[in-house]
């Protein structure tokens, strides 16, 4: 079971997302995260799916995705050099006592405080999945009020380009 990041270019049509997520549930494939948004060409969306499985399963996932009529292109980003980023918004307890520490912690992880109230901070943090996990680990569990993560987006390095 290894982690794979699969990028999918898909026609921006109604139902394409449910067709893809339905494929994963119907065939028992894992989805750790899934992100989707239109590309610079509004007729197409790009999806990043983080999944895990044996080599055979990953091969089937890419083949089955390719088989869907609306799917234009599929690549397994993790086959070669790539970059991944995820955005997290995390709301933490930040009363008089914790404020200093919390700000310092955010700085260490290069997070930014983007909303402040009497007793909370909302911190914005980007990075790969492990970095966001590490930030959560570094905080007192009791200090986290709310977490929202986008899931990973990925892109190949250098000349490696996914386009039609």
């Amino acid at each position: 079971m290894t982690r794979h990041i699969i990028s999918v270019l898909v026609e921006n049509e109604a139902g394409a997302l449910s067709r893809i997520s339905g494929l994963f549930s119907a065939r028992g494939y894992n989805i750790e995260t899934l992100t989707v948004a239109p590309t610079e060409d509004a007729s197409m969306s790009r999806m990043t799916i983080v999944t895990s499985g044996s080599e055979d399963v990953i091969e089937q996932i890419t083949k089955q995705l390719n088989k869907l009529i609306e799917v234009v292109k599929v690549i397994d980003l993790s086959e070669a050099e790539h970059i991944e980023r995820e955005l997290m918004l995390i709301k933490v307890r930040a009363g008089q006592k914790e404020r200093e520490d919390m700000k310092r912690m955010a700085d260490i992880f290069r997070g930014r405080v983007i909303d402040v109230s009497d007793n909370t901070y909302t911190i914005e943090l980007t990075g790969d999945t492990r970095k966001l996990d590490a930030f959560i680990q570094a905080l007192e569990p009791g200090s986290i009020l709310e977490t929202v993560r986008t899931g990973a987006s990925g892109i190949g390095r250098g000349n490696r380009v996914l386009r039609v």
């Binding site: 109604a14 139902g15 449910s18 067709r19 339905g22 119907a26 009529i69």
Partner: peptide, 14 residues
């Protein structure tokens, strides 16, 4: 109909 038949068709459209 599109939702119900999605996993049992080659393709479907509304």
């Amino acid at each position: 109909a599109v939702g119900i038949t999605r996993p049992i068709v080659k393709h479907n459209m509304l």
